[in-house]
């Protein structure tokens, strides 16, 4: 090896070994959860639990999906899907429109509007939960999808992202469209929107995960179990007091809860990475 940058032989194997160890450590909690979701409750409560899957896969998942503990998990999955999709689509839609207005028009209050939405970048929902809760309660939106969705789309990250992207679209395209006779909204639909496809998709991936993984907000405003989302619903499945938790069903639910966002990340890895880099920088 002697100072060479490229690794060969033993060094290469050590590198792989280190990485594989890392992967195993990262995977271990998931593996254990998977095993727990395929065995019976008695096998778990009599430690140590087995480290290889059992034969109860279908029974546990069916029980979780159909009956759950308080609510069928299928219902919670549907709630999560509505919330995550609502947040992703809602935020993308309002952000596209306002970014278009900010970049391509000069209108009274433009600068003020820009700074107002800039402020929203600084405050996560966790900081203003109590008053937000009161607003939602006053609108009668507790235990409702709008109540789950609206407070979480009240932030301007996506607006900034689209603004940045629109700024990179050559001026000449808008001019060519004007010469071609396109009015503003026609330009938006025919040119700007199709050109933003990749950005929209990347942002969609990030927002979907963000929405799906919300915990505190649904915990506050969904007191009705039939409106629980899956991520916050898991905690509700633990019994209060000294009763033993139904671990196989809880673990099956946990895996179901992580499956959609994990699939999104793996299947749309390129878009996911791009979205991550876009939104965080």
């Amino acid at each position: 090896m002697s100072g060479m940058v490229e690794k060969r032989g033993v060094g290469l194997w050590l590198t792989h070994a280190g990485l594989i160890l890392g992967v195993l450590v990262i995977f271990f909690p998931i593996w254990l959860a998977f095993v727990a979701s395929t065995v019976t409750q008695p096998e778990i409560v009599r430690p140590p639990m087995p480290l290889l899957p059992g034969d109860q896969f279908f029974e546990n998942y069916r029980e979780a999906l159909v009956s759950g503990v308080n609510t069928p998990v299928a219902r919670m999955l549907a709630n999560s899907a509505v919330m995550a999709l609502g947040i992703a689509f809602g935020k993308i839609a309002i952000s596209l429109l306002s970014a278009f207005a900010i970049v391509y028009f000069r209108f009274p209050g433009r600068q003020l509007f820009f700074w107002l939405i800039f402020l929203t970048l600084m405050l996560p929902v966790e900081v203003r939960i109590v008053p937000t809760y009161e607003v939602v309660a006053r609108f009668g939106m507790l235990n409702s999808y709008p109540g789950l969705i609206f407070p979480l789309i009240a932030s301007a990250t996506a607006t900034f992202l689209f603004r940045q992207f629109f700024m990179t679209v050559p001026d000449e395209l808008a001019e060519a469209a004007r010469v071609d006779g396109a009015r503003p909204m026609r330009f938006f639909w025919d040119i700007l929107l199709p050109m933003s496809r990749t950005n929209i998709a990347a942002l969609f991936v990030i927002l979907f995960i963000y929405g799906w993984n919300q915990y505190l907000w649904p915990l506050l405003i969904t007191t009705d179990p039939s409106m629980n989302t899956i991520v916050m619903g898991i905690k509700q499945m633990f019994p209060s007091g000294d009763d033993v938790a139904d671990w196989p069903v809880i673990m099956a639910t946990s895996l179901l809860a992580m499956l959609p966002p994990v699939l999104v990340v793996i299947l749309m890895q390129k878009l996911f990475i791009r979205g991550l880099v876009d939104t965080e920088k």
Partner: peptide, 11 residues
């Protein structure tokens, strides 16, 4: 009009 960078709609 013909533009310097052609301004063709890329999509």
């Amino acid at each position: 009009m013909v533009f310097q960078n052609y301004a063709l709609y890329p999509h």
